[in-house]
Design a protein around this nucleic acid. Structure first.
Length: 598
DNA sequence: ATAGGGTTAG
C-alpha cells in the first residue's frame, strides 16, 4: 500500500450522482441480449430417470446410477470418478450434496437441479452446503420459478440466513433478471461480506443498471468493505458502459496503490473500460503491462482498436495474437471484421471472413454476416451485399436488414432501401429507429409524401422516437442532456454564437435528415439542438481549455452534428471524442477518425 | 467444504 486512496473524498461530485435516471442513461449500444427466463423445468436431464410423484428409494438410486453412468460414458471416458465410487452407499444428504456439487462445478446444471428435486422427493433434507451450489445451477439455467421455490425451501430449512446461501440467492435473482429481488435479499441478509457486495454489484451491471452499480460501489467503499479484484471488475464494466472515464481512472489508480492483482479478468476489464471511454493510449498501456493475457484480453484490445477507428492497429494486434499462439474465436473475428468495416477494407474483410472458416474452423454467426453486409453495403457493393443476405445459411435478423437499410441511406439507394425496409418492418414493426432510417432516405430525395405516409403509420401504431440523449463528464460529474431539454439561456446563446461563427466558415445546417416535413427554419432548429450539440456547447463552456471533450450519445450521430463537430474541432482547436451508438468519432483539426464512414 | 469476475455486428 503506497498511499491511502478513498472514494469518499469525491463522493459529492462523483459521476453516478449526476445521473438523473437510469432509463435516460445515454447508453444503449453495448447490449447483451435479454436473457430469457425459462419456465420451471423439473424434467430430468437423462433418459430413464423420469420421476414419478413418489418414487421408491431404490428407484431414485437407480436414476442416480443411470445419470452417473451416462456421465462416465460421455464425459469421463471410462476413468473412475468420485461420483461413481460413492454409488454403493445409501442415499443420504452427504452423498446428494457431493453429487450436486460435482455436477454444478462441471457445469452440468440440469443434472444438479435434478438430483436436488429427487432429494426433496425422497425426503432427504439439504443443508446450506447443498443449497449454494444448486442455487448456482438454477441461476445459470435462469429458472425463475424454480429459484423462488428453492428460496422458499431454504427459508423453511432455516438456512437462508447463511451468508453463502444469501449470496447465492442474490446471484440467482440477478441472473434471472430480477435485480429488485436480488437487492431485497441483500438488504435482508443478516451477514454480508465482500463477496455478497460483489454479487449485487455485478448483478446490477448484468442487468444493465450501470449507474446503480456505481452507486452501490460507492456505498460499499463508504461502508469500509474490502474492495477486491472482483469488485473492480464489476465497477469497471459499469464505467465502460457509461463512458465514466474519471471513475475508471480512479479505479485504475486504486488497483496500483493497493496492489490488486492485474489478472486476466481485471486486466481485461481495464482494457475494455479504456477502450469504451475512447482512451486508446491508456488501453494499450494497460495491455502492455499485463502479464497474464488470454483470448478475452486480446478480444477486448482488438475490438477496442476497431471501435476507435484504429483498424490497422486491430489487424496488427490480430497478427501478434496469432504469433503468440493464441487461438482466435468468434469474438476475435467480430472485432476484426468490424475493423475492416470502419476502415472500408473490403478485400481484407472478405479474406478474414474466409480464413475464419477455412483456417480456424469457426462457423460465422449472424453477427459476422452482419459485419459483412455492412462492409459491402457501406462500400456501395449492393448486389454482393444482397446476395450474401439472401444466400446465407442463417435467417436474416432485423439487424441485418437495418444494416442494409443504413447502407442504402449512405448511398441514397431508394429502391433497395424500400425493399430492406419492408423486410425489416415485417420482422420488427415497433422499432422507431427503422422508420427514422427509412424516412431519412426519403428526406434526402425530398420525398415528403412518403414521409407523411410513414409518419401516419407510426402514429397509427403508436410508435414514438427514442429521445436523443448525450452525456458529458466534467470534473467527475456526468451531465446528461436530452434533445428536448429546456435549454439554459447561456447554453442556447453559446450554441447560437458557435453556429454563427461556423456559418462564416461555410457551414449550412443539414436538415435533410429531419424526420418531418416542416418549415426550413424549424428544421434547422430541430437539428440545432440535438443533444450532442448541447453537450458540446456545455463542454466548451465548462471544461479547461485544451482538454479533450468527451461525449457519449445513445443514438447514432446525425450528419449535421458530424459536420458541426468537425468544424468546432477546427475553429476552437479542441479535440472532441464522441461515442455514438456504434463507434467512436475522434474529432481533431476539422476531421474525424471515422473518415466520414459510419 | 458451500458464494462473486472480463470480450461480442449495427
Amino acid at each position: 500500500m503506497k498511499r491511502p486512496l478513498t472514494l469518499t473524498t469525491r463522493a459529492r461530485g462523483s459521476p453516478v450522482r449526476a445521473y438523473r435516471s437510469a432509463s435516460a442513461s445515454p447508453e444503449t449500444r453495448w447490449q447483451a441480449p435479454e436473457r430469457q427466463s425459462t419456465a420451471v423445468s423439473t424434467n430430468p436431464p437423462a433418459a430413464g430417470a423420469r420421476a414419478s410423484p413418489a418414487p421408491a428409494r431404490h428407484a431414485v438410486q437407480a436414476s442416480l446410477m443411470s445419470l452417473v453412468e451416462s456421465h462416465v460414458r460421455s464425459d469421463w471416458r471410462g476413468s473412475p470418478s468420485p461420483l461413481l465410487l460413492r454409488l454403493g452407499e445409501p442415499i443420504d444428504s452427504r452423498l446428494c450434496r457431493h453429487v450436486i456439487r460435482g455436477y454444478t462445478s462441471q457445469g452440468k446444471h440440469l443434472h444438479s437441479v435434478f438430483v436436488f428435486i429427487q432429494m426433496q422427493r425422497v425426503g432427504v433434507r439439504p443443508d446450506s452446503f447443498t443449497f449454494a451450489p444448486v442455487l448456482k445451477s438454477v441461476a445459470r439455467l435462469c429458472l425463475r420459478e424454480m429459484g423462488r421455490s428453492v428460496h422458499a425451501y431454504a427459508a423453511k430449512a432455516n438456512v437462508d440466513g447463511d451468508v453463502y446461501v444469501g449470496t447465492s440467492l442474490v446471484n440467482l435473482y440477478s441472473g434471472c433478471m430480477l435485480i429488485g429481488d436480488a437487492h431485497k435479499v441483500f438488504d435482508e441478509m443478516g451477514e454480508r461480506n465482500s463477496v455478497s457486495w460483489n454479487a449485487l454489484i455485478t448483478g446490477y451491471t448484468h442487468n444493465r443498471k450501470f449507474a446503480e452499480a456505481l452507486d452501490l460501489f460507492r456505498e460499499m467503499q463508504a461502508d469500509g468493505v474490502e474492495l477486491t479484484e472482483v469488485t473492480m471488475v464489476g465497477a469497471l464494466s459499469a464505467c465502460a458502459h457509461l463512458g465514466a472515464l474519471s471513475l475508471g481512472k480512479w479505479i485504475h489508480e486504486y488497483i496500483d496503490c493497493y496492489g490488486l492483482c492485474l489478472n486476466e479478468f481485471l486486466g481485461t476489464a481495464l482494457v475494455d473500460m479504456y477502450a469504451k471511454c475512447g482512451a486508446v493510449m491508456e488501453m494499450e498501456k494497460v495491455f502492455i503491462t499485463m502479464r497474464a493475457k488470454n483470448v478475452y484480453t486480446w478480444n477486448a484490445l482488438i475490438s477496442g482498436f476497431a471501435m476507435n477507428g484504429h483498424g490497422e492497429a486491430a489487424l496488427q494486434a490480430f497478427s501478434r495474437m496469432i504469433m503468440e499462439n493464441l487461438k482466435p474465436d468468434g469474438v476475435t473475428f467480430l472485432g476484426i471484421l468490424c475493423a475492416c468495416c470502419h476502415e472500408g477494407l473490403v478485400d481484407e474483410g472478405k479474406k478474414y471472413f474466409r480464413i475464419m472458416k477455412e483456417e480456424f474452423g469457426l462457423r460465422p454467426g449472424i453477427e459476422h454476416y452482419g459485419c459483412m453486409v455492412d462492409l459491402l453495403g457501406q462500400a456501395g457493393l449492393f448486389s454482393e451485399a444482397l446476395h450474401l443476405v439472401q444466400n446465407m445459411d442463417l435467417k436474416p435478423d432485423p439487424i441485418i436488414w437495418r444494416t442494409l437499410l443504413g447502407a442504402c441511406r449512405t448511398h441514397r439507394n431508394v429502391p433497395l432501401g424500400r425493399y430492406a425496409a419492408r423486410k425489416l418492418l415485417e420482422l420488427e414493426p415497433t422499432n422507431a429507429e427503422n422508420y427514422v432510417l427509412l424516412s431519412n432516405i426519403y428526406a434526402q430525395d425530398s420525398m415528403w409524401d412518403e414521409i407523411a405516409q410513414l409518419r401516419a403509420v407510426m402514429n397509427q401504431r403508436g410508435i414514438a422516437k427514442v429521445a436523443g440523449c448525450s452525456s458529458i463528464e466534467i470534473g467527475n460529474v456526468v451531465y446528461e442532456f436530452v434533445a428536448s431539454d429546456c435549454l439554459k439561456p447561456e447554453v442556447r446563446d453559446l450554441l447560437d454564437d458557435i453556429r454563427k461563427e461556423l456559418k462564416q466558415m461555410g457551414y449550412a445546417a443539414n436538415t435533410g435528415l429531419a424526420l418531418y416535413d416542416i418549415e426550413e427554419e424549424e428544421k434547422e432548429s430541430s437539428v440545432a439542438f440535438h443533444s450532442e450539440k448541447i453537450a458540446l456547447a456545455f463542454g466548451l463552456m465548462k471544461s479547461p481549455p485544451g482538454s479533450t471533450i468527451r461525449i457519449v450519445k445513445n443514438l447514432r450521430v446525425c450528419q449535421d452534428c458530424h459536420v458541426f463537430f468537425k468544424l468546432v474541432s477546427l475553429v476552437y482547436k479542441r479535440k472532441i471524442s464522441l461515442r455514438d451508438r456504434n463507434q467512436f468519432h475522434h474529432f481533431a483539426g476539422g476531421s474525424c477518425s471515422c473518415r466520414d464512414h459510419w
